[in-house]
Computed example of a mutant assay.
Amino acid sequence: MRKWTAEDVPSQRGRVAVVTGANTGIGFETAKVLAARGASVVLAVRDRDKGERAAARITGAASGAEVTVTHLDLASLKSVRAAAEELRAGHPKIDLLINNAGVLFTGKGTTSDGFELRWGTNHLGHFALTGLLLEKMLPVPGSRVVTVSSLGHRVRARIDFDDPRSERSYDRIAAYGRSKLANLLFTYELQRRLPGIGKTIAVAAHPGGAHTDLMRNAPASFRAFATIAGPLVQRPAMGALPTLRAAADPGVLGGEYFGPAGPGEIWGHPRRVSSSEQSHDLAVQRRLWTVSEELTGVRFPV
């Protein structure tokens, strides 16, 4: 079977792509390829200075690339609303929204709205951003919402609707797994609510094992594994390929999930993969949607 690479990304000229967390790692590599293919790319980042430096690196590597920066702190619903307002005002349409940014193994913390940090950033922040931008995507043929999940969605992941703020119990590995499971539940439920053929679709991806800045706060056991498995752990450019395929492959269908083709989906070129049985639970998908709307105050135009 032929291996899918960044060279397979078709021309993106005339398209507008918003990539969260695009100043480094997988988000940066995703934005770089899209810009090189002609997309007008928005780096939606928490640190504007780092975003501007990342934009300069992209434009320096690809002559004529169009890259702008928008401030976005997914751990603040106020910031999410401000970023969405700026993006809606600055762009008559949005073709791609890539929900890439994430918090991995930082210590226990809360968002400015009082949610557990991983849950509030990885899921609720992206849920709200998508809902606030979707009206700019629905009229655009071929537009896509791509949300980046993780192999971690299978690890001690369970949505506890009785304790959405993790006030009664907390474990950072379980909290991360829960947020990545929520990314998939959200993608599948969004796809079911979208209008249909030829319009916006929702797709998910995961990078496998990749060397990124997210690992800097990982538990010692995870860092030790990454050291031992070094030859199998991908560089960010390879880790970005599943996201790029989900975003740009003309053959992608709504509700699909992409990850590396190698053993354990840790490394390799991207292909369609499966997610956990729990992620396909319709009742959990619908309940998560309702709870997320209540917690964020964002209603989707679908």
Rank of each mutant, 00 (worst) to 15 (best):
M1Q: 08
M1T: 11
K3F: 11
T5D: 10
A6V: 13
P10T: 08
S11W: 11
G14M: 03
R15N: 11
V19H: 07
G27M: 09
A31I: 08
A31P: 10
K32F: 11
A36P: 05
V41Y: 06
L43Q: 07
L43W: 14
A44P: 12
V45S: 00
R48D: 09
G51D: 11
G51S: 08
A55Q: 03
A55T: 07
R57G: 10
I58W: 01
A65P: 05
V67L: 06
V80G: 04
A83N: 07
R88H: 06
I94W: 03
L97E: 06
N99M: 08
N100M: 02
A101M: 03
A101C: 07
V103L: 12
L104T: 13
G107T: 07
K108E: 14
G109M: 02
G109H: 03
T111N: 01
D113C: 00
G114N: 04
W119G: 00
T121V: 13
T121E: 00
N122R: 02
G125V: 10
A128I: 05
L133I: 07
L134V: 09
L134G: 04
E135V: 03
V140Q: 14
V140P: 01
V140R: 13
V140T: 10
S143I: 11
T147E: 02
L151V: 02
G152H: 03
R154D: 08
I159H: 03
F161L: 02
F161S: 02
E167G: 06
R168T: 13
R168I: 02
S169K: 14
S169I: 09
R172M: 14
R172A: 09
A174G: 13
R178G: 02
T187S: 14
L190V: 05
Q191G: 07
Q191F: 08
R193A: 12
R193M: 08
G196Y: 12
I197A: 14
G198V: 06
A202F: 04
G209T: 12
H211W: 15
H211C: 05
D213F: 09
D213V: 10
N217R: 10
P219E: 07
A224V: 15
A226L: 14
A226H: 15
A226V: 15
I228A: 15
G230S: 14
G230Q: 09
R235P: 03
M238N: 12
M238Y: 13
G239W: 05
G239F: 02
A246T: 04
A247K: 03
L253G: 11
G255I: 05
Y257Q: 00
G259S: 06
P260H: 07
A261F: 00
A261H: 03
A261P: 01
G262S: 07
I266E: 12
S276D: 02
D281W: 00
L282H: 15
L282C: 10
A283E: 15
V284W: 05
R287Q: 14
L288T: 01
T290A: 15
V291R: 08
T296L: 03
T296H: 02
G297F: 12
V302I: 13
